[in-house]
């Protein structure tokens, strides 16, 4: 049994549904990311776990105990808010000490644990500052220390990196992951950024319009997306509608595309193919035409049209002098891929 369990957790606002029967188990020490586009119900789910929003249905269990009706102060969760939510009138040390005070930890032990938590986030030299005297990244780390110092049973993070600039985001991402692993924290993190989710979490929960679409590791989601939404949301993906025909896939435009149909669902209506799994070779006799070339440094993107179907292809940028380097719009090419690289999905 997981250390955090959600059972058919739902939230309705009037006639609209923000979260619809979400089931999830987070194991002790595991980090799970709720991933999905803005408005899909991630924050609502997290806030139901913290106790700020009463669920319309379902249960929340922490450490096997039903806390569905427990007030926030009686749940053993440590939350990091998107806006950090530091206490502006308290020093950094007082902010971090607050949770220990509420738990009636004695003065001496409290001071010691506060300094230890601040050392952990490398802010022990700023203990006496006020939050407004710190940079965004430093405030973020105070919020982390404040939530961590009480050893919460469940660690909750709501888009913790969205207010940081790109460079800092990468650093803090590594830092949070390292802390989480070192302290063995059971963690639920909310993000709309797939890269963030892929790099930080053990498992991901992809949500859309209040429902869970798929749960799995980054690799499972990327290699075996359960539906077109997941295929399109986790990484980029060519999605072509059509139907199975013989050993191949007949696109609506008429092109017959190579695929491996063993084990494919009978109602397969979409072919999913990652752009980096497609090979592209210049060939004057080829029937495919390049319609766009975008140079991205390490990679180059090609839009290629073949019998009315346009596919996105990404290749490592070839070295200078390579004939591939001279490919331009209008050039004839041949596309090829492993039949095993193709996923066949039911209609959206």
């Amino acid at each position: 049994m997981g250390s955090l369990v959600l059972e058919a957790l739902s939230k309705r606002y009037g006639s609209s549904t923000a979260v619809e029967r979400v089931d999830l188990e987070v194991a002790q020490g595991e980090m799970v990311a709720l991933l999905g586009p803005s408005g899909c119900g991630k924050t609502t789910t997290l806030r139901m776990v913290a106790g700020f929003i009463p669920p319309s249905g379902g249960r929340v269990l922490i450490g096997g105990q039903d806390v569905t009706r427990a007030p926030p102060y009686a749940r053993d969760t440590g939350m990091v808010f998107q806006s950090y939510a530091l206490f502006p009138h308290m020093s950094v040390a007082q902010n971090v000490a607050f949770g220990l005070e509420m738990r009636k930890v004695g003065r001496a032990e409290r001071d010691e644990r506060v300094m230890e938590a601040l050392r952990l986030v490398r802010l022990d030299h700023l203990a006496d500052r006020l939050p407004r005297q710190l940079s965004g990244g430093q405030q973020q780390r105070v919020a982390l220390a404040r939530a961590l110092v009480v050893n919460p049973a469940v660690f909750l993070l709501d888009e913790p990196l969205s207010n940081l600039d790109a460079k800092l985001r990468g650093e803090v991402r590594m830092e949070i992951r390292a802390l989480q692993q070192r302290l063995g924290l059971t963690t639920l993190i909310v993000t709309h950024d797939q890269e963030e989710a892929l790099t930080m979490a053990d498992r991901l929960v992809v949500m859309e319009r209040g429902r869970v679409r798929q749960v799995g590791t980054a690799e499972e989601l990327y290699e075996h997306p359960a539906d077109p939404f997941v295929a399109g949301f986790v990484g980029r993906c060519n999605l072509v509608s059509g139907r199975l025909e013989g050993g191949g896939f007949r696109a609506e435009s008429g092109a017959l595309l190579r695929c491996d149909s063993t084990g494919a669902p009978a109602d397969a209506a979409l072919l999913a193919l990652r752009p980096e799994r497609i090979r592209l070779d210049p060939d004057p006799a080829g029937e495919a035409r390049i319609t766009a070339v975008t140079y991205l440094g390490a990679q180059t993107e090609y839009h290629v049209e073949q019998r009315g179907t346009t596919l996105l292809v990404t290749r490592p940028t070839p070295p200078l002098g390579d004939p591939m380097r001279r490919l331009a719009v209008g050039d004839a090419v041949v596309l090829s891929w492993d039949a095993a690289a193709v996923r066949l999905l039911p209609a959206a």
Binding site: A50, P72, M79, F81, P88, F98, M102, R146
Partner: peptide, 18 residues
């Protein structure tokens, strides 16, 4: 007033009056 600061306090174990 930033209400999330109040939520943070509740999350850290403070009852409403506190």
């Amino acid at each position: 007033l930033d209400r999330t600061a109040e939520e943070a306090a509740a999350n850290l174990g403070a009852r409403p009056l506190t």
